[in-house]
């Protein structure tokens, strides 16, 4: 195993590790909004680790890896934001205490311990 392979394998396992943690988060977290944090980890950290490992292991694909990594890092938050706003429009109340968008909808903001 040459040094290049070892570095590539380490990057790939970092990516797989974050994907596993993100997927575990998607399973265990209570509602859509917190789960979006977890799925964001998968699509940015998980994939960027995998792509970095692939770029190290196969140097001829480095440009494609950069394109794919840049594309994923830009579009993943936009997709998560779209899902979150869709969930809010569907009327899913976040389990967290604060509802910062409530004033726009006219619903009373739940006053929690005098906030």
């Amino acid at each position: 195993m040459s040094l290049q392979e070892i570095i590539g394998i380490v990057f790939i396992f970092i990516g797989v590790f974050f994907s596993a943690i993100g997927t575990l988060g998607v399973i265990r977290l209570p509602d859509v909004y917190t789960r979006l944090h977890a799925s964001g980890k998968v699509s940015t950290l998980g994939l960027v680790g995998l792509l970095a490992g692939t770029a190290v292991l196969m140097p001829q694909t480095t440009i494609k890896m950069l394109v794919l990594a840049l594309f994923m890092v830009i579009t993943a938050p936009v997709a998560s934001h779209a899902i979150a706003s869709a969930a809010y429009h569907l009327g899913i109340k976040p389990k967290a205490q604060r509802d910062d968008l409530a004033h726009r909808r006219g619903t009373p903001t739940p006053v929690v311990n005098g906030e």
């Binding site: 799925s39 699509s43 994939l47």
Partner: peptide
């Protein structure tokens, strides 16, 4: 619907990772 859509989004992201690993 939002939870299912988020699951689909997660599946496609994992699929991209799998495709990259397959390329390797």
């Amino acid at each position: 619907h939002a939870e299912r859509l988020q699951g689909i989004d997660l599946i496609t992201t994992l699929l991209i990772g799998i495709i990259v690993l397959l390329a390797l």
